[in-house]
Simulated assay, not measured.
Amino acid sequence: MWKLYALLSALFAALTAILAKIGIKGVDSNLATAIRTTVIIVLSWGIVFTIGAHHGIRALTRHNWTFLILSGLATGLSWLFYYKAIAEGDVSRVAPIDKSSIALTLILSYIILGEKFTPQTLLAGGLIVAGTFLMLWK
């Protein structure tokens, strides 16, 4: 099932870029990010309360809180920079650079999480990086 979720994530990430580029025209990128974030907060908490997951808040440890907050800060900074980039550049050029985070994630998952590289992940990561540079080549 995780593969379906990953494909849906990719689809909605692509739509995010296109819809944001249309919606950000003439709007400060930080304001646009704040509006987007507000929508995400309402949607996320709506789902949490609808499915009853809010009862799990008490079970969160200090470790959970620390890393979820750090992840949230990283996400917020990513969105702020992403919106600034698409406000100033072409989505078709910004998106590949943004998606090069896949290669960075592979490296960090190896260093921080101890996940192993396979020949497939090395090749895929290399192709992603090569594709990013190819997209940027004028």
Rank of each mutant, 00 (worst) to 15 (best):
G46K: 07
L43W: 09
I107M: 12
K3E: 10
L122A: 04
K3V: 13
I86E: 06
T66A: 09
A20V: 10
K25M: 11
G26C: 06
L31I: 15
L108Y: 07
L31H: 09
T38N: 08
L108A: 14
E115Y: 09
I47D: 03
L122Y: 03
I111V: 15
L104K: 06
A130V: 14
K116Q: 12
G131Q: 02
W45M: 14
L122W: 07
A85T: 10
M1F: 08
Y82M: 10
F49Y: 15
I69A: 11
A14S: 15
L11T: 13
A130F: 15
G126F: 04
L104C: 14
L80C: 05
G26H: 09
L108W: 11
I112S: 00
L31P: 04
A34M: 13
I41P: 01
M135P: 02
V94A: 10
F12W: 08
M135F: 06
A32E: 12
I111A: 03
I69E: 01
I41E: 00
S44H: 06
R93W: 14
P96N: 03
A20W: 10
I97C: 02
G72L: 05
G131M: 05
L104G: 15
Q120C: 06
V129H: 01
F67M: 11
T50I: 15
K84Q: 09
L19N: 08
I97H: 00
R62L: 08
G23E: 12
I69C: 06
A85K: 06
S92I: 05
N30T: 13
I69V: 15
V42A: 07
A74N: 02
P96L: 05
H63L: 12
A87G: 15
A130D: 01
A74E: 01
L122G: 06
G125F: 05
A53W: 04
V27P: 00
R58D: 09
L108R: 07
H55R: 13
S44F: 12
G131N: 02
A85P: 05
L15G: 10
D90I: 10
I69F: 13
L73H: 02
L15V: 11
T132F: 04
A74M: 12
L73N: 03
R58I: 10
